[in-house]
């Protein structure tokens, strides 16, 4: 069974950037990787496809296509298989239902999920309804990661995600710190990880190179493979692929969370 992971975290914290760079780094290592974008914005895989937008599952369903695997799976950087679920414009319809429907379809028609070493589900930042946890509930995710900075609000979101995971009796395989340049971030996130019963897997420093590459529709791994930040993503990719202990996270109370960010 492949490693099937989901990276959770507050919206805008850098989940898609992290997911696509980890995907690219793993592909460099020779792993077969699939990335499944679950955000209605459908831009999870864009930097693996040189900026190209691919048709989403929901788009095709809406047009009444008889969907086959090859219609929705696109080969990106070094053969990374890219899938975008898609969904309605903000404020219309029900994006959550879209994810449920697309996940059931994927389960039915796709061998990509089985024929890979790593499947990354890039889930939206805010789990606003039942549909957004469909990949976990339908048993498609076996490892969960939380991405956060050391600021209060992203940590608050990370802590809430841990509440959700513990309710689903889902283990947490690690915390990743995506730095926003706040003081003392690595220590804060490291302590947070320890207190919820997990560990800090990587500290990704703030680097403008990530933005520069994304603007060109590329991952750091592809555009600047020898950069320091590419090295960080490679190390994170190795940590993700390595076997490690995982526990159901114990969320903190809000008082402790505030204290923690005051360090």
């Amino acid at each position: 069974m492949p490693k099937q992971i989901a990276i959770y975290g507050k919206g805008g914290i850098g989940k898609s950037s992290t997911a696509s760079n980890v995907a690219a780094a793993c592909a460099d290592e020779g792993y077969r990787v699939t990335i499944i974008g679950c955000d209605p914005k459908s831009d999870s895989s864009i930097t693996l496809l040189r900026g190209r937008r691919i048709p989403t599952i929901m788009d095709l369903m809406r047009q009444g296509m008889d969907i086959r695997e090859e219609d929705i799976i696109f080969s990106g950087y070094k053969g990374v298989k890219c899938v975008e679920i898609g969904g309605p414009e903000p404020g219309i319809g029900c994006a959550g239902r879209g994810i449920i429907v697309a996940i059931s379809l994927l389960k039915k028609i796709s061998k990509a999920i089985e024929d890979t070493d790593l499947v990354i589900y890039d889930v939206p930042g805010d789990i606003v309804c039942g549909g957004f946890v469909a990949p976990v509930k339908k048993g498609l995710v076996n490892e969960a990661y939380v991405l956060t900075s050391g600021e209060y609000m992203p940590l608050y979101a990370a802590n809430n995600i841990c509440k959700g995971l513990s309710r689903l009796e889902m283990t947490l395989n690690g915390v990743i710190c995506n730095s926003r340049g706040a003081p003392n971030e690595e220590v804060i996130v490291g302590e947070f990880a320890k207190e919820i019963g997990s560990r800090l897997l990587a500290f990704i420093p703030k680097d403008v190179l990530v933005q520069t590459c994304e603007r060109e529709g590329l991952s750091v791994i592809e555009k600047a493979p020898d950069s320091a930040i590419a090295g960080v993503y490679r190390k994170l990719a190795q940590a993700i692929m390595a076997e490690k202990e995982a526990q159901i996270p114990k969320p903190l109370d809000d008082k402790r969370l505030r204290e923690l960010t005051r360090i």
């Binding site: 959550g96 239902r97 449920i100 309804c129 549909g131 946890v133 509930k137």
Partner: peptide, 10 residues
């Protein structure tokens, strides 16, 4: 119940 993503199996 299906639109809100209820899992009967749970």
């Amino acid at each position: 119940s299906m639109i809100i993503g209820e899992e009967l199996h749970e």
